[in-house]
Amino acid sequence: MPPDDEGAEVDDLERARCPTGIEGLDNILNGGIPRGNTILFTGSCGTGKTTLSLEFLVHGALAGENCLFVSVTEASEKLMRNVIPYDFFDENLIKKGKLVFVDMPVIYRRLGMTAMELTLEDVETLVKALGDLVDELSIKRLVIDSVTSVCYRLKTEEKIRNFILKVGKTLSDRGCTSLLISEISPSAERYSLYGVEEAIADGIVLMGNLERRGDLLRTLQVVKMRGTNHSRAKYVLDLTPAGILLVPLLKGGSGGGT
């Protein structure tokens, strides 16, 4: 055991990591997501955002951390039916409450938020409700799929900014590492629908489809990640029953473009 002060120094230099359990991604991130970070996982439809975030939670739950998936876009029951049957998945994680699914519409209803557009006050209430849930269940990893759908109901930039900032703070205060899923159109010039989310998040991971000479490849790129150095190169991914696998995108001297 090193003396206490030495330990603190190491902590300063190298923040504790939350390994995603996805070997390729942990290699890119030099060990994992810095703990307590709020990361924006962004990409167009079908690029694997839901699949990746679920795998992140399953690995966390297997490692003994309590994990929460907040499903906004589709009912979690339907989602579960479409999940890849992972070799390493264990039903008991759900039965034992290590892996919890909550549907956002249920939270809205409980909080009496029936209006299509939420107020600034609602934002406060919503974030507090999430914080309470994280406290109550001792959640260490959280996914909101998708945060874009929550933003639809916030409408103004001020409220969106407020929501993302507060969610981020609430979760990191609790040592909870979070993935906010963001949906963008393939042609988008930015990483989030409103442009606000990307500026506030501690990290941005971009998932996309790349067409190269008629072949369509799924790609992943870590654009930013506070608290660690990381590769910014593009990787090609495959969603398999053994989990998500990543290999570097070959450039072939042409930049790998379309």
Binding site: D215, L217, V236, D238, T240, L245, V247, L249, L250
Partner: peptide, 17 residues
């Protein structure tokens, strides 16, 4: 196709895993 060299690597990776 044989142009999807990354996918060849990914399948090898999968089998190794």
């Amino acid at each position: 196709s044989s142009t999807m060299l990354e996918n060849i690597m990914l399948k090898v990776e999968y089998l190794l895993k």
